[in-house]
């Protein structure tokens, strides 16, 4: 073993670099958020079938939107920060959609991850802030907390308590194709990109 040590160094360098390369998708993906976006773009994910309830208290499901592109975001209605921004961004999206050929082929869904607090009433009130629900924009919750967790987990959405009674959560637009698969995740303010994707998929 005359050169055992040198060989050892080489092996460690090789495997170490390989591990870091693998763990950061070629030194490009260092955060969980970018990792989840990359993964979704590479292999679209089916969504779990869960019962949803909308702002009128009526039962809906993602299957109801089959054949349409769904742009989905996550909020909780007590939020005074990101969720209000998310709301106005979806308001703009609805404007764009309803003034284009996309109307009827693309729907917006705002889903609360706090179903214990956000019932149909709270959802409706949140909707009012942005001009109310209509055929394009639906405000929903999964009444069972377990279902909510399953949904969040399937999309790798992480919600953490902020220590002041509120939550911190990923802010993004989740693009779901007409077959009901999550195919892309884009920045919450990337309205143009979301519309282009929707146009492509619809």
């Amino acid at each position: 073993m005359k050169h055992g040590g040198i060989v050892g160094i080489m092996v460690v360098l090789l495997f170490g670099t390989a591990a870091l390369w693998w763990g950061s998708d070629g030194f490009t993906t260092f955060t969980a958020e970018s990792a989840r976006r990359l993964d979704v773009a590479r292999s679209p994910r089916p969504l779990p079938a869960v019962a949803l309830e909308d702002q009128r208290g009526e039962t809906v499901a993602f299957e109801d939107f089959a054949g349409k592109v769904v742009l989905l975001n996550f909020v909780y209605t007590r939020c005074t920060t990101i969720c209000t921004v998310l709301g106005s961004e979806f308001e703009q999206l609805r404007d764009e959609i309803e003034h284009s050929e996309l109307e009827g082929r693309v729907v917006l869904v705002t889903l609360t991850f706090d179903p214990e607090h956000d019932g149909p009433k709270q959802l409706a009130r949140y909707a009012e802030r942005y001009g109310g629900a209509d055929a394009t924009w639906h405000f929903v919750r999964a009444p069972s907390m377990d279902d909510t967790r399953r949904l969040l987990r399937a999309m790798d959405v992480v919600v953490v308590a902020d220590g002041f009674g509120g939550f911190v959560h990923n802010a993004a637009i989740h693009v779901i194709d007409p077959r009901g698969r999550l195919v892309r995740i884009v920045d919450s303010d990337a309205i143009g990109e979301a519309l282009a994707l929707a146009r492509e998929l619809a």
Binding site: G26, F27, T28, T29, F30, T31, S34
Partner: peptide, 9 residues
């Protein structure tokens, strides 16, 4: 170097 590979950083 990381910024070169990943502008979000």
């Amino acid at each position: 170097m990381i910024n070169a590979l990943n502008p979000a950083f």
